[in-house]
Design a protein around this nucleic acid. Structure first.
Length: 577
RNA sequence: GCCCCGGUAGCUCAGUUGGAUAGAGCGGCUGCCUUCUAAGCAGCGGGUCGCAGGUUCAAGUCCUGCCCGGGGCGCCA
């Protein structure tokens, strides 16, 4: 409807320009929805845009535009000049009411789009190495990435959800050594380090306590889960691993256990990956070597102090970076570049990397290298999200990664449930800090808990259907609904709001911003719940069969939109609560 | 020191890519209502949109500088 009006305005403006002897191009017409109802259904600012060019006052141009436009091919019932030179348009109520029919006929396809033309897109997210349980920060990323994937899928893209991980490297060795230390400690072969030495980097570290060696690494993983993994090794292998030479066996045990835990956690919040991509495979395939080779061909690779560097300072970045350490081991940067080459080779038109704010600095280095290799780095997109803090009753819950006192997804999920967790994690835009109010999340009153508010609004549509069934009233099909019967202002408002769903979903996909959907659903539920509540003024089930069918049609429309919106957020849409 | 992201109602946050009188939820206050399973409805109060300049017919939105909070600036990932 917006587009059709914009076309008509464009044509009218063209005629006005020609009449004024101006042969230039007609500027793009912006037709937006005013915030205030009194400003009509749509508003256009073209008169103000053209004021300077035509050397006439905007209000005068606006008047001429209304004259020229007429009823815009039957679309407009009323138009007036307002404010500094806006033209406000009112559409006939039937125009809006008719949208309900479209909605009902589309059913659960309503809001789906083919804008993506089936183009393959990859969304990479979480990508945590198996060194510990997933934190709530990972939780935000998991939900954000999954919702972006859902939105893109809804918009007609061919989406691959991918998790990139590394089970080699220094961190994993530290992990293995941490488990090994706990194993030996529990068998009385080693002493745990002095807690103060662990807490304070400056404190003296003793390598021996009470005649036993201290083998725990200084930068080791301190979480309780390390001890639990060690205990399971004791249960299965006894003391057989005491003289195990390296940390390998311990590392493998930790990796297996932690990955199982991570997958379980992801499962519990409804997230499924299409691909788990192991960084090691880039070594096995020779992609690391190959990438280093092509990087050398750019002439920007040099050696210094035994390390291999890439000259980023020539590419507008503030420093050069090491690709291969003097130990001969690549830094994470080289595999990262190789990985992104592979992403393109695999045919993705666009790759979206969802990452935490602590990685913000790294994106440009990957992109610059990819660009230097002749790829189009614009096809790499980053969605960075800020950190999550937990609060309870307005007080922040303290967390520290180092001391392993951070709250895990599993712990939080024990209290709040998947649907609430998901909604709270996508309610904010990614670049905003997220304050997770545990008290509100635990609130069971549906009117207060935002997640239940949405879900109950949906459940109510089923409640009404159950009531209708009890009275022997059939649910109407799309063609049984006479939208003209829905003439109350609150009904028109509701239909208008329902009609916005497709553009909201599409815009959220394009901007990679699922929070728009959350806000939109709140608006729909915020119109619907009071409407249902006020049964005195407009009971849905009445003696008037035609009116009842129309209002049941509206009920079904609300159900479709709420269900589809909740689906985009990965939340369930219960039929009763 | 440099780079990135925030700063909007008491609190947590939206703000349709520059539009009109800046919104929502929670909390506070007043009145009505007693449910198509559920305390909902109407209203009130609440704001120098961090500060100062600039661009524009029009700035919460764009540009510059500063202040505050968070993150980053490793041969860690």
């Amino acid at each position: 409807m917006r587009e059709r009006l914009a076309e008509q305005i464009q044509l009218a403006l063209g005629r006005l320009l020609v009449a004024a002897g101006d042969e230039g191009a007609v500027p793009p017409v912006a037709v937006d929805s005013p915030r205030q109802k009194e400003h009509g259904d749509f508003a256009c600012n073209s008169a103000m845009v053209l004021a300077k060019r035509l050397k006439r006052p905007p209000r005068e141009i606006a008047t001429a535009l209304i004259e020229e436009l007429g009823d815009a091919d039957g679309l407009v019932v009323r138009a007036e000049v307002a404010g500094p030179g806006f033209v406000n348009f009112w559409l006939a109520g039937e125009r809006w009411q008719a949208k309900l029919g479209d909605l009902l006929r589309a059913g659960d396809r309503f809001g789906k789009s083919d804008a993506g033309k089936n183009v393959p897109v990859q969304v990479e997210f979480v990508s945590a190495n198996p060194t510990g349980p997933l934190s709530i920060g990972h939780g935000r990323q998991a939900i954000l990435g999954d919702c972006i994937a859902r939105l893109l899928d809804n918009a007609g893209y061919q989406v691959t959800r991918e998790y990139y991980f590394n089970n080699g490297g220094r961190q994993m060795r530290v992990l293995g050594n941490s488990v090994r230390a706990r194993y030996l400690e529990r068998l009385g072969r080693a002493a745990p380090p002095d807690p103060e030495a662990l807490a304070n980097e400056e404190a003296a570290w003793s390598d021996e306590i009470g005649g036993l060696p201290v083998v725990f690494p200084r930068d080791g993983y301190q979480g309780d889960y390390i001890g639990e993994i060690a205990q399971r090794l004791i249960d299965s292998d006894g003391e057989a691993l005491v003289d195990e030479p390296g940390e390998g066996r311990f590392r493998e045990a930790a990796e297996t256990s932690l990955f199982a835990e991570i997958r379980g956690t992801l499962e519990s919040i409804g997230i499924h990956f299409d691909v788990f991509y192991n960084e090691n495979s880039l070594y096995d395939d020779g992609k690391i070597e190959e990438t280093l080779g092509v990087l050398r061909e750019t002439g920007r690779v040099y050696e210094e102090e035994g390390a291999v560097w890439f000259r980023y300072s020539d590419l507008g970045l503030d420093r050069d970076r090491v690709l291969v350490k003097s130990s001969g081991e690549p830094t994470y940067l080289l595999p990262d570049i190789a990985y992104h080459r592979v992403k393109f080779d695999r045919g993705f038109a666009t790759v979206i990397d969802v990452q935490g704010a602590d990685h913000k600095d790294q994106g440009p280095f990957v992109c610059a290298a990819i660009q230097a290799l002749g790829h189009d780095a614009d096809r790499i997109e980053f969605v960075f999200h800020e950190f999550v803090t937990l609060s309870r009753g307005g007080k922040t819950v303290k967390q520290s990664t180092r001391k392993a006192t951070f709250v895990t997804i599993d712990e939080l999920l024990a209290d709040v449930g998947q649907d609430v967790f998901r909604l709270f994690m996508v309610q904010r835009r990614p670049e905003s800090h997220l304050d997770f109010d545990v008290e509100l999340a635990e609130e069971e009153d549906w009117t207060k808990n935002p997640a239940y508010y949405l879900q109950y609004a949906h459940a109510r549509t089923h409640g009404i259907e159950r009531q209708a069934q009890a009275r022997g009233i059939p649910m109407p099909g799309a063609d049984d609904v006479e939208p003209a019967r829905l003439a109350l202002p609150e009904e028109i408002d509701l239909i208008k709001k329902l009609g916005e769903f497709p553009e909201v979903a599409l815009r959220a996909a394009e901007t990679r911003a699922p929070h728009h959907v959350a806000y939109y659903l709140r608006e729909v539920a915020g119109l619907w719940s009071p409407y249902v509540q006020d049964k005195n003024r407009h009971a849905i089930l009445s003696d008037d069969a035609g009116l009842t069918a129309a209002r049941l049609g509206l009920t079904l429309g609300v159900r479709i939109v709420l269900a589809r919106g909740l689906e985009l957020l990965g939340m369930s849409a219960p039929e009763r609560m």
